[in-house]
Design a protein around this nucleic acid. Structure first.
Lengths: 341, 341
DNA sequence: CCAAATTTGATGTACGTAAATCAAAAAATC
DNA sequence: GATTTTTTGATTTACGTACATCAAATTTGG
């Protein structure tokens, strides 16, 4: 049986009330007494029963998800997962609310965060926009005791407690190796379709991609990046143009959203040639394209896992508890047509 | 605020004691009264507070892991993860014990299960050996109210509540496509190294592998399977022999354990030729081989995830609660040298 | 050494549920 | 209609923790 507060009180030779004061950091305990209690806690290996504590406190975990107002499948999926989490909130004692903030707009994000800093403490999960002023508010909030995790896109160099998302450099590198290996001995050009180079995750994916390409596949040259703004129409036009003007393209890496347009363009143009294509994010469109052979591999991050992980980490941080690191690592999923979920 | 037992009592116009009798399926409630209470539960959307209930009951979840006594890295890893879970057991209210049973030995497994059926009810996670007599005991245990999940290796056609493991046919198919695509236009022979064809997961991997090879890569022919019994020494000898006698081998698929021997054989023989190699299970050995280029891709199942998932599912089943299906799906991890954890 | 301030103890209530007891009411049986 | 059986109610204690109150003990300051 694990020790209870009563056991500590007995072991430390103090009353229950004193143990309570120490545990909950209430004033009115002399230094020596506090030490006695803390020693007893350590020796007995006491761990607070979080379930019982939450019951007594009537505690719920107020959580806020800050998401960019982007209209693409991935963000829709992320939103859906958060709604699922909200449905579970009574069982999980969470109280989740979401705030939309205009995309790639540091000042907007900063003002939302500053608004939160005025309210009572809550856990924050945010899709970060990478800017110094954002880092500053985040650091301030962390110092003020707010548990903060970044979601999907990280804020490196900040004090955020955790990042629930994939390693985007590794993702880009993996994409490059897959493309390179699938192309085998073929020489030619690779078209890269991104959303925007202003977004950190896209920049990182490109960085990883180009470095592996340069190191290991010198016969393949990367064309200037097409910025499709995660918009299917724009993507369609850019890819169509590129394929028309450049007969040497043998492969495509789509590292952002807006794959609907890419797929349409590929189908229109691929009658005359075979392209090897690696794209990000598993959606109804990319899934169909993988199955019909238009796309060769899909790299994916599991939005559901990211949301559940963010919630687990925020709750643990609010309680000052440790997390199971391996459990919270978001992996890069690689899907071929054979291992689709 | 979510409704409590008091709210139901009030709504149904009965006493707390009666609500308790209904909730915990105690006798002494007339049919009509039971219905009144059940209606109130449904209308108010009452959900039992599991934390409070467990506190009141002083409940722990007795769990048993039944594992084959196999001496390979994967089973060691699985064991390590179970030990980790045991360390967390006080916080998770679990009481975990493991039972080793000789590998690939249905009668031994059956007798262990029958022993458990005599004890008080507990959740069972087992690495199944696929045999009719095992299926029968499992079905009997499930009917007797034991929550049962299969781990790593499934028992299809049985009543087990859940399977915590990967889809091995999909794994084999994926391996075939990776090998085939990596080899590009090359023709030649593929060596397959398995542990034993008596194990269901190995059979399934081979099945998936051969079917994709046959369908999509007719220029590659599969050599007769080498059964390495998951033993490094045996594997080393078999692979060395195969490579010596057959100059046409261009690729290797290792679908079982004992990769240490495979890797040594490859290093000794690969001075004169380039092989494309796909292997299962990420261990220190396969990881190093992936990084130094001896292996091209590793397929993996995350033992930690499998153990945690099995525990979550068993607890949920014991409480009659639903699980988050997407969370419990064990995915096939594909590692290239760029996305190693 | 006395008064004031601080520290500690004792005790009770609460959270939502489980489980037990005993009395009272209702239903079924003869 | 009286008796037995079944069903229901009322009440209590418990789980491990949080939190509040008030009294008692101890320390501190003058």
């Amino acid at each position: 049986m694990r020790p209870t507060v009563h056991d500590i009180a007995a072991a430390a030779g103090v009353s229950l009330a004193t143990v309570d004061r120490v545990l909950n950091q209430r004033p009115g305990v002399r230094h020596v007494t506090r030490e006695k209690v803390e020693n007893a806690i350590r020796q007995l290996g006491y761990i607070r029963d979080v379930a019982a504590a939450n019951l007594a406190k009537g505690r719920t975990y107020p959580l806020v998800f800050i998401l960019p107002a982007s209209d693409n499948s991935f963000m829709h999926g992320l939103n859906a997962e958060i709604r699922q989490a909200i449905l579970r909130s009574s069982a999980e004692r969470t109280d989740i609310r979401t705030i939309e903030v205009s995309a790639f707009d540091p000042p907007a994000l900063v003002s939302v965060l500053e608004g939160l800093s005025q309210e009572k403490r809550c856990g924050i999960a945010m899709v970060a926009t990478d800017a110094p002023e954002v880092r500053d508010v985040v650091d301030r909030l962390v110092r003020a005791g707010f548990p903060i995790v970044t979601l999907v896109s990280d804020l490196t160099g900040s004090l955020r407690h955790h990042y629930a998302g994939i390693d985007n450099i590794a993702a880009g590198r993996t994409a490059a190796r897959l493309l390179g290996r699938f192309l085998g001995a073929r020489k030619g050009e690779i078209a890269v379709l991104a959303g925007s180079m202003l977004v950190r995750d896209h920049r990182e994916r490109l960085e990883g991609f180009t470095s592996v390409m340069a190191e290991e596949f010198p016969d393949l040259t990367i064309l200037p990046v097409l910025e499709g703004r995660d918009d299917p129409e724009v993507a369609h036009r850019l890819v169509t143009d590129a394929l028309s003007h450049n007969a040497g393209i043998v492969g495509v890496y789509s590292l952002g959203a807006g794959n609907r347009g890419l797929i349409r363009a590929l189908k229109e143009k691929s009658v005359d040639r075979t392209l090897t294509v690696v794209a990000h994010e598993l959606t109804v469109h990319t899934r169909a394209a993988l199955l019909d052979g238009t796309i060769d591999a899909i790299l994916n991050q599991d939005a559901g896992h990211e949301v559940r992980s963010a919630i687990r980490v925020l709750k643990a941080k609010a309680d000052g508890l440790a997390v199971i690191e391996a459990q919270e690592r978001i992996r890069l999923d690689i899907f071929l047509k054979d291992n689709l979920p």
